[in-house]
Simulated scan of single mutants.
Amino acid sequence: MSRIDAKFAQLRAEGKKAFVAYVMAGDPDYETGLKIVKGLPGAGVDIIELGMPFTDPMADGATIQLAGQRALEAGQNLEKTLQYARDLRKEDNTTPIVMMGYYNPIYSRGVDAFLVDAKEAGIDGLIIVDLPPEEDDELCIPAQKAGINFIRLATPTTDDKRLPTVLQNTSGFVYYVSVTGITGTAAAQAGDVGPEVARIKGQTDLPVIVGFGIKTPDAAEAIAKIADGAVVGSAIVEKIGAGESVDDVLAFVKSLAEGTHRG
């Protein structure tokens, strides 16, 4: 059983939904970013999404684009992002870590070498937004063979004809993108999302987690009531970008986690 599977089993037993927090590795700098990541489990985060900074983040809105730029300018790279996971694993061997980003840095490193390093570092899953199911042989299937979950995105435009293809090699959980467009823009509406989550759950036994457009504890609670959990990224990254202290960022994360866990 993977750490992701174990976490969902634990949450189910506790009658809770999953709170997933996204942060950009290396934002605003290596040390501050690492303090935030290490503080996430204690703030109630069930699964950590660790953003891999990349120069051309086409699925991301301004908030996460700027976070990536800050991280890159501070010298963050793929190796340093893997080091975050290694450092967290020294004190936490249960919280799942999912790396999220784009294929180019992994391709540049070499898929085989990356998967060996990621497994050794304690990475549990990958969300690679620019690799469609038609390219599963490229990374998805090798990752699964290496014991790393490959988590796929489903969107409002993923119709019933396309959905089985999206779900085919997905593992860990399904990430439902609640709005059409880029990160950090429109707000997620539970009334719109509920039927879509039900539609996806009709075709898979995997948990369905909802992200994009969730900015407040109340919004996280509303989404958690109709899904298996909520992801918050841009709202957290915005506070980091505004220069808020690590303690203040983690206090905000804690409020989001509490909202989700009420769902």
Score class of each variant (00 low, 15 high):
Ile4Asp: 09
Arg12Met: 05
Arg12Ser: 10
Gly15Thr: 00
Lys16Asp: 00
Lys16Val: 00
Val23Phe: 02
Pro28Ser: 13
Pro28Gln: 08
Asp29Ala: 11
Tyr30Phe: 03
Tyr30Ala: 03
Lys35Asn: 06
Gly42His: 06
Gly42Cys: 01
Val45Pro: 07
Gly51Met: 05
Pro53Glu: 05
Met58Val: 15
Gly61Ile: 14
Arg70Thr: 00
Glu73Arg: 00
Asn77Pro: 03
Ala85Val: 15
Asn93Leu: 11
Ile97Thr: 09
Val98Leu: 01
Met99Ala: 01
Met100Tyr: 02
Ile106Cys: 09
Ser108Asn: 13
Gly110Asp: 07
Asp112Ser: 11
Ala113Met: 03
Ala118Trp: 01
Ala118Phe: 00
Gly122Val: 13
Asp124Lys: 09
Gly125Leu: 05
Asp130Arg: 12
Leu131Cys: 14
Pro133Ala: 07
Ile141Cys: 10
Ala143Arg: 14
Leu153Gly: 06
Thr158Trp: 09
Gly172Val: 09
Tyr175Asp: 01
Gly181Val: 04
Ala187Cys: 14
Gly191Ala: 09
Gly194Val: 05
Arg199Lys: 15
Gly202Lys: 15
Gln203Asp: 12
Thr204Leu: 04
Glu221Ile: 06
Ala224Tyr: 04
Asp228Phe: 05
Val231Ser: 08
Ser234Asn: 12
Lys239Asp: 15
Gly241His: 09
Ala251Leu: 01
Leu256Trp: 04
Gly259Cys: 10
Thr260Pro: 12
Arg262Asp: 10
Gly263Asp: 05
